[in-house]
Design a protein around this nucleic acid. Structure first.
Lengths: 344, 344
DNA sequence: GCCTCTTACTGGACCGGTTAAGGGAGTGCG
DNA sequence: CGCACTCCCTTAACCGGTCCAGTAAGAGGC
């Protein structure tokens, strides 16, 4: 079926049908004062009969405010698809966008250069009114870009990473510390962490926090491995951690997301190790996935949906010219389940 | 940090700096004939120096073509986040959109009414140039809506579901048949299927195909259970299938996505059944998840990324006024792994 | 009855591009 | 030399809204 080129109805048609000027229609549809109720009714009726709604494009051009928010995500699709985090985050963002009847422009990019290019093109082309920036790295160019363009933006990440941008963040350092202390309290003295991509800022924060906690607790062994967040990498890391001689092997492993923890679980099974008797596993992010495994996965849990909503709210306030600053959201909390127990 | 209201540079500034009229700038940026190379160069240089790019908003208003594609997805966020399918699909769509330098407007909706509302609002407000429609149901209102609005659209789903819309689809019936025949060939005589949401068109197609295959092969037992695609539901379904007396219990289960198969795997473990010795499991969609479990999951596999790309290409051809029609893409193929074997 | 103040609405400039029509300079040809 | 024909560029209308200045009509006050 080919699309029929519909004769598009405009504000002029509505005005004509209601017997008013187009200015009046504009007033009515923006709920501004200066019209009698009778006229208002007539206008809405006419619009409804003609099936008209104001063109956002024209409205944007005239009013110079854009009701679209950008989000560029820079991770390989095969990793992204498996990370429940993003969809939950997006869903939280949308819940707030919907209230403001604005929309999300989503783009998957392959690297930072591409992301910077996309953000800049969006902004230059007046496609977005502001942007959500995720996955900050060391020397991230996006804070500078944002400032240079004068583009409203909210950064997801610890203020130390986001170069002065308004940011929303979870206190990963405290959460890592809590995780390690929990495992230590269970009696684990040799603990490993399978971390995310090393160039990601929040990975560095967690890595540092893990080191510090291991030192404070004087653990007998503390390993950290970097990955790309993919299940494959999580499996490889787990395999290499668990193939060590028994006495040298971690008895507990902390993962940076839940997909790697799932992979770790099956590596343990494949190696004939029982979870949690032989090795305890602790996930991060706590999507539903953690409750679908056997045993269920203990996890550092937080409300990703709510987090997304907070980010969107903050972005709107920045767009409105409100104060920026730093907005911490609740620290992930430990959700103990079946994959953690005292070591044998 | 508050956004500084940058004095936005427009085509006029570029024209002034290059010493030409804005019409000339427009010609240059649309690669249209009628300018000398020298002038063209001067214009591009001026634009570059000022950091100008044409406003898509203004361009759309004037040219009445919109470079944005809509996608509204109607599944609960907690299910969505876990379904690698969507992100892979989106990534495929984007790979084609990027070539046309257009963008994806994404919206998560809660029900069909909301989706219809969103699509209609997008179109009326000239926010999108066309839309991708997924998850067709019985009596789906979207074909009618699309026709009524004259909105270019591509439907993802079998032509029997999509009411005459241009559609791109996989031959699920054949794939289900192949899956059942494979399990039967292994020697399974009691086979179950844990299906998706019953009101989804492709679920119905698979259900019918399963029934037919079961009949043709004269299976001793064939069960089908409907779910909402969530891991929880998959676990419940599996549990209820496997708690039957041994002689009445399926020896193989086919799942409609991979997350439910993962859940099924852990239910089997929890019940002390070994996979594949006691029960064979066969997943659908074959994301990386299927290779992260122990045992790895056999699956009906297809190229979701490529599928998304095909859909996007088809949409562009529809927007360009090209012929619609029905575009089948390759049928999912069986990828045997560790979760299927002859019954004991 | 005249002046002021509201209220309700109109007219038109404007946002930042595209595009068709038009115009001036240079070249080829009879 | 005059005419037609290109080539290159300008002019101005237009897309579909917003918004502000202006106006007409009615109400209220003295």
């Amino acid at each position: 079926m080919t699309a029929t080129p519909t004769p598009r109805v405009t504000i002029k048609d509505v005005a004509a049908r209601a017997g008013v000027s187009k200015g009046a229609v504009s007033l009515a549809f923006n709920h501004k004062p200066g019209l009698s109720d009778a006229t208002r009714d007539r206008i809405f009726r006419a619009a409804h009969e003609l099936g008209w709604a104001p063109s956002l494009t024209a409205r944007t051009l005239a009013g110079s405010r854009v009701d679209v928010v950008g989000l560029a995500v820079c991770r390989p699709a095969r990793v992204l698809g498996l990370e429940p985090w993003y969809m939950e985050f997006v869903s939280g963002v949308q819940s707030v966008l919907a209230e403001h009847s604005s929309s999300l422009l989503l783009r998957l990019v392959r690297n930072m250069d591409e992301e910077v290019g996309v953000q800049e093109a969006w902004w230059r082309a007046r496609q977005i009114g502001g942007s959500i920036l995720v996955d900050f790295r060391a020397d991230d160019p996006r804070a500078a870009m944002t400032q240079r363009l004068g583009m409203p933006a909210v950064a997801v990440g610890h203020p130390s990473l986001t170069g002065g941008l308004t940011s929303v963040w979870t206190d990963d350092a405290t959460a890592v510390t809590e995780a390690v202390r929990y495992l230590a309290a269970l009696g684990h003295r040799r603990i490993a962490r399978v971390g995310g991509a090393a160039d990601l800022g929040h990975t560095a924060i967690r890595t540092a926090a893990f080191d510090q906690a291991a030192g404070t607790l004087a653990l007998a062994g503390a390993w950290q491995v970097g990955t790309d967040f993919s299940g494959d990498a999580g499996a490889r890391a787990t395999r290499s951690l668990l193939t060590a001689a028994r006495a040298d092997r971690p008895t507990a492993i902390l993962y940076d997301n839940d997909i790697m923890a799932v992979a770790g679980l099956s590596v343990a099974a494949e190696m004939g190790l029982r979870v949690p008797e032989d090795v305890s596993l602790l996930a991060w992010d706590d999507s539903q996935l953690c409750r679908l495994t056997h045993p269920t996965l203990s996890a550092m849990s937080h409300d990703v949906h709510g987090f997304g909503a907070d980010v969107a709210r903050t972005l709107f306030s920045v767009i409105a010219g409100g104060e920026g600053g730093s907005h911490p959201v609740p620290t992930p909390v430990l959700m103990p389940r079946g994959s953690t127990a005292p070591p044998r």
